[in-house]
């Protein structure tokens, strides 16, 4: 069984092919790193996996269940969570409210128009716990607009983790972070339990190399190399893609 499988996935915008016959098979608990230079189609691949963009052909499977045409929101309920490369948070609200919304998304409570959200103790407690996992519990009540960029990145991850996903998609979790912040986030990602399957996009090869079990190198929408860390690093085509840039 695979946790996440992508089969012969294709997508073009206008005449431009951004994803060409991509195949992925990620084992349960695996840490998969997807690398590739700018414009390799990494984020598009994520959008296809989450259903935010519909593929032209091919299939996406979650634990062997075909989800290619399933609405994005339903994939979340099946255990798929993602973060965004461009911070996509609720800037007017507190960090706690951001985390609460993530929990609310999977709760039937989300349809309730009568009770007060801030009085839902169990939800708030869960949200605080999720923030504690990423070390943000001390500033949980701070408005998001008053937080640093590094903190926002961690909120992104906290929201995805709060949903207790089976498959977690991280879109450049280190983007724009300082060296110290990178270390913190790396530590954070290392602590994610092995029952969560993690697929991570990175632009640079080195940033997240040590986190990965297997690596897929994407270039112009195609899988160029796939294998273990050592295999991909040693492969001449990898050097070609990165040096030829």
């Amino acid at each position: 069984m695979t946790a996440l499988a992508v089969q012969n996935l294709c997508k073009s915008f206008g005449g431009l092919r951004v994803t060409t016959n991509v195949n992925l098979a990620v084992e349960p608990g695996e840490r998969r790193l997807i690398i590739g230079p700018n414009g390799a189609g990494k984020t598009t691949l994520f959008n296809l996996i989450t259903g935010e963009i519909a593929p032209d052909s091919g299939a996406v499977l979650l634990f062997d269940r075909e989800i290619t045409r399933l609405a994005t929101r339903k994939r979340a309920h099946l255990g798929m969570a993602r973060t965004y490369q461009i911070i996509t948070l609720f800037a007017r609200d507190t960090i706690l409210h951001n985390a609460t919304l993530a929990l609310l998304g999977l709760s039937t409570l989300r349809w309730n128009p009568l009770v007060a959200l801030h009085r839902q103790q169990h939800l708030t407690a869960q949200a605080r716990a999720a923030l504690e996992r990423v070390g943000l519990h001390d500033i949980a009540d701070r408005p998001l607009a008053e937080t640093s960029y590094g903190e926002k990145r961690r909120v992104e991850i906290a929201m995805a983790l709060a949903q207790n996903p089976k498959v977690l998609l991280l879109d450049e979790p280190f983007a724009g972070l300082s060296i110290d912040e990178r270390r913190d986030v790396r530590e954070l990602l290392r602590r994610i339990p092995r029952d969560v399957t993690v697929v991570m996009i990175e632009h640079d090869m080195d940033t997240a190399l040590d986190l990965a079990d297997r690596i897929t190198l994407l270039h112009f929408g195609e899988v160029v190399v796939e294998g273990t860390r050592a295999e991909v690093v040693a492969d001449p085509r990898t050097r070609e893609v990165y040096l030829g840039e």
Binding site: R73, H77, Y84, L89, F90, L101, A102, G105, L106, R110
Partner: peptide, 11 residues
């Protein structure tokens, strides 16, 4: 504020 994120969160 973030329709896309809301969709991805399951709303």
């Amino acid at each position: 504020d973030q329709p896309r994120r809301m969709n991805a969160l399951g709303f």
